[in-house]
Design a protein around this nucleic acid. Structure first.
Length: 399
DNA sequence: GTTTGCGGGCGCA
DNA sequence: TGCGCCCGCAAAC
């Protein structure tokens, strides 16, 4: 089941070879192929040593978009845009939400913004945040190269991400918007109370269309093969308690500072096995977040569910014509009929003591495709109730 | 405020 | 020389 990075490369190469020109070029070549017969669909999560040729009309390609947190890197070559992966921001306490999901935030691209981000706390347990650096390219971050040539945009990725996928840019933006909204709308907001009261009386839930676009796509609950390999290796590591190691939010590591997780292997945050000693551990292995708030900030984390076998539902991103086509779906695509997962309990508690991220996620998340959904047996189709809505409004104030 | 692209500059192999 | 990375700047959102 697990495939190594080499297999991934071979798979991509095989896929690419079917398109002829795909493997015959390198981003540094003086002359890139002009007889491109196959334009790739945009790959939102390119991984491993892949190459793609996009149309110059492709908006995502034009913007050099990637759902990985990629920052611009100066390669002193104005013709080739180089970007390196920033990794993923994880909870330093390796906490899990009530439904066993992990916190995987998108690192801010800007250095200052990223440092500021790391000074914040885990939205789930208020523990410190850690930047899990990407070391998937010979110990260095995975690099992406973009080169515009005529009517095509050539893309090449070097390295295989050795960390989970962060939330997407849209999700991160939405989370920031919600943070602002939460600042604007206090929990005692009369309008909010009015809505809640009305809802409790009528049993009506807010329309999903009116909800912020925060959906974490099923696809992003996946991980590169090499990462799964890491998980397999890490499975023998001692299992540490997650939230028992809760620390006051004093200072998460700076980008290059002490708090940065320098290597995937050093991070306890992303181990495969949920702590067996974790209170209430079970299929969903919830963690009891500290009741006292150390930070005032609040956000909507991107989380990954943990499967019963202890492995996250990480999925290999297949080749250009594989399920990458599904990955092209913007989070917007889910806004109509699905809701974003609400992976952690309401920051301020709320009237429903049983409110849990698990409930919310199971009720609100998009059902995964059969090939990747291994946790579907946990009451997924329960409808919204007042409790959940109440928490929802705490998390997603009206804007 | 943040992202993005660009480019100067430095250190290392 | 190539690469990684830091830093600052400007434009755009």
């Amino acid at each position: 089941m697990l495939k190594g990075a080499d297999d991934v490369v071979m798979e991509h190469e095989d896929s690419a070879s079917r398109h002829g020109e795909m493997t015959s070029w390198d981003i540094n070549d003086i002359q890139l192929p002009q007889d491109v017969r196959q334009i790739d669909g945009f790959q939102e999560w390119p991984d491993s040593y892949v190459k793609h040729i996009y149309s110059s009309e492709d908006k995502n390609a034009q913007r050099h978009h990637s759902s990985w947190a990629m920052r611009n890197t100066n390669n002193h070559n104005s013709r080739i845009l180089k970007k390196s992966c920033l990794g993923v921001v994880v909870c330093g306490n390796d906490c899990s939400t009530l439904d066993g999901r992990k916190i995987y935030l998108r690192p801010a691209i800007c250095d200052k913004a990223r440092q500021k981000q790391q000074r914040k706390c885990c939205p789930n347990c208020n523990g410190p945040l850690r930047l899990l650096s990407c070391r998937g390219h010979g110990g260095y971050p995975v690099t992406n190269f973009w080169r515009h040539e005529g009517q095509f945009i050539f893309f090449q990725s070097k390295g295989a991400h050795d960390h989970p996928r962060p939330e997407t840019k849209l999700e991160a933006e939405a989370r920031r918007s919600i943070q602002k909204a939460q600042t604007a709308f206090s929990p005692s907001c009369p309008r909010l109370k009015q809505i809640q009261e009305l809802e409790s009386l009528t049993g009506a839930a807010p329309t999903r269309e009116a909800l912020p676009l925060l959906l974490s796509k099923p696809d992003i609950y996946s991980l590169p093969d090499n990462f799964r390999g890491h998980i397999s290796k890490r499975s023998q590591e001692p299992v540490l308690g997650s939230c028992s190691r809760w620390l006051p939010c004093s200072r998460a590591g700076e980008d290059r500072g002490s708090g940065e997780v320098l290597a995937w292997s050093r991070s306890p945050a992303l181990r495969s096995n949920p702590s067996p000693g974790r209170p209430g551990s079970g299929p969903a292995a919830p963690c009891t977040a500290p009741s006292h708030q150390q930070c005032t900030h609040s956000s909507t984390p991107h989380t990954l569910p943990m499967e019963k076998d202890g492995h996250g539902p990480f999925r290999h991103s297949t080749g250009p014509l594989g399920d990458g086509s599904c990955e092209d779906k913007s989070p917007l695509a889910y806004s109509g009929s699905s809701l974003p997962p609400l992976p952690y309990p309401a920051p301020q508690g709320g009237p429903c003591p049983m409110a849990s991220g698990a409930q919310h996620h199971q009720q609100l998340s998009v059902p995964r495709r059969g090939s990747e959904g291994h946790d579907g047996e946990v009451g997924r189709h329960v409808g919204l109730n007042y409790c959940n809505d109440d928490m929802f409004f705490n998390l997603y104030p009206l804007r």
